[in-house]
Design a protein around this nucleic acid. Structure first.
Length: 427
RNA sequence: GGAGGUGUCGCCUAGCCCGGUUUAUGGCGCCCGCCUGCUAAGCGGGUUGAGGGUAAUCCCCUCUCGCGGGUUCAAAUCCCGCCACCUCCGCCA
């Protein structure tokens, strides 16, 4: 939820942010009107309630005679109070509906426009030149099969399209990547976490995933649980309704969790392989910090992602996502996209978002500072999304004989193996 | 899943049977002061939290006794539902 003070003091900036997202600017004025209605209904209710209370106090000490008259008065007042309360609740609900649909204000620096309007910030590393090496690269499906690392056919048999098994070295690779990621995070001062992957509606709503992203979310209607699409959800909700002492900031968490995504609306997109799947495991970084620190922290998260990608020894670029592609909660987002040889494209491997105080306001996460209590900023960033990392590793480090070279940093996590070798046909 | 118990202002706790003078009692802790070679002890005072009116440390209002409803002129207190925790039983990885 956006900062109302900001909206009131500078509505034009909010309208402009909406335009740059390609979203309706009138929403700002609807919210302001709803807020006005809400505030006046609250004032009316509070005044009546105060009168009622004072009458109640008089009744308590009144004589029997006085009591009759006072009761008469307060009975009439009671229905007024109920009326005012109902009005206030209605106004509150209307306000919440309006404000909940408003996305975070895109940062002034975020490029205007949609998905294709990103700005490339930098390139790191050179895409490998297979032509110069004299062989045609295989895609990760083929490589995964030869290494006995990925079983897509049986994934489909058991669970359907966009499911897979990681087998043998594939499974080893996941544990290696997770351990390496957790070691890096721990070394950087993160608290490691394993959060629940099923959450109540509040957590989902509070992190902004029941808005435009709702179609992509799995829901268990019997118990009203949601399957998280990222551990950002349980990590943000972790400190909901809490006031954190400023001295304990920033708080950094690194969580391992499964992620579930319907991938609705991506029919026909990335249908081959494990690049886009309904379930995968991920290690996510998450920070709670003061608002003034958010931008610097965003850069730090990006820095840790780059440190990670360097260990994978993949070529990548960093893009500044356009306003229209930010999602509900983010004010700015950087994606690291690795070069995928057989696709001839850079594809998203990690993503880091600055949500400023948007999630904090929804989840009631605040900090206690010398000068008062204020909402905190929350930020998140991928360290490793397993299937995409495996795709990039397999394709980038494949060798002419169908084996895969293991990057030096990863070797200690793979029992010292320097290459992963193809297994015999069959199985 | 079943039975029983518990949930009060940082922590412990009184109040609930029998609704109003509760602006929620007391202790611990914490803060201020006094006393005092220093410290401890002792003495006196203060201390639920949040939101809003306000830019505001004063002041005013509302909300807050696990959560949500209900009854009532009036709910910590009565009724209903839910949640969490504890004990025991059952079941399971």
């Amino acid at each position: 939820m956006i900062d109302l003070r900001l909206l009131r003091s500078d509505p034009e900036r909010a309208r402009d942010a909406q335009r740059r997202r390609g979203a309706p600017p009138e929403l700002v004025d609807e919210i302001l009107a709803a807020d006005e209605a809400r505030r006046s209904s609250i004032a009316a209710f509070e005044q009546l309630r105060a009168e009622q209370k004072s009458l109640g106090r008089q009744i308590a000490t009144a004589t029997a005679d006085e009591r009759v008259a006072l009761l008469e008065k307060t009975r009439a007042l009671s229905s007024e109070v109920k009326q005012a309360e109902a009005t206030q609740e209605q106004a509150e609900a209307a306000f919440v509906t309006a404000v909940a649909s408003m996305p975070n204000l895109a940062a002034p620096e975020a490029p205007a426009g949609g998905e294709d309007d990103y700005v490339v910030l930098e390139h790191v590393g050179q895409p490998r030149d297979f032509a110069a090496e004299g062989f045609e690269p295989l895609d990760h499906v083929e490589l995964g099969q030869r290494l006995g690392a990925i079983d897509i056919e049986r994934g489909a048999k058991v669970s359907g399209a966009r499911f897979y098994y990681l087998t043998g070295v594939g499974a080893d690779l996941e544990f290696a990547l997770v351990n390496m990621a957790m070691d890096q995070a721990r070394g950087a001062g993160f608290t490691t976490m394993i959060p629940p992957a099923l959450v109540k509606p509040r957590a989902m709503e509070g992190t902004g995933f029941l808005g435009q992203a709702a179609a992509d979310v799995y829901h268990l209607p019997d118990e009203d649980y949601y399957l998280v699409g990222t551990s950002e959800v349980p990590l943000a909700a972790y400190h909901s309704d809490e006031i954190l002492d400023a001295a304990t900031l920033p708080r950094r968490y690194a969580a391992f969790s499964p992620c579930y995504r319907k991938e609705a609306g991506s029919y026909g997109k990335d249908t081959r392989g494990i690049f886009r799947v309904h379930w995968f495991d991920k290690v996510e970084m998450f920070t709670y910090t003061r608002l003034e620190e958010a931008e610097a922290e965003h850069q730090r998260l990006l820095g840790w992602e780059k440190e990670w990608l360097a260990k994978l020894e993949v070529a990548y670029r960093v893009i500044d996502t356009a306003a229209g592609d930010l999602g509900l909660s983010a004010q700015r987002k950087f994606d690291c996209e690795a070069w995928i040889p057989t696709q001839g494209k850079y594809r998203e491997l990690t993503s880091t978002s600055n949500c400023t105080d948007f999630q904090s306001r929804r989840l009631n996460i605040r900090g206690r500072f010398d000068d008062g209590i204020r909402p905190l900023a929350t930020l998140n960033g991928t360290l490793v999304a397993i299937p995409r990392a495996i795709v990039a590793l397999l394709e980038t480090h494949q060798q002419a004989d169908g084996s895969m070279r293991v990057p030096a940093a990863l070797q200690p996590y793979l029992q010292g193996r320097e290459t992963l070798e193809p297994v015999g046909a069959g199985a």
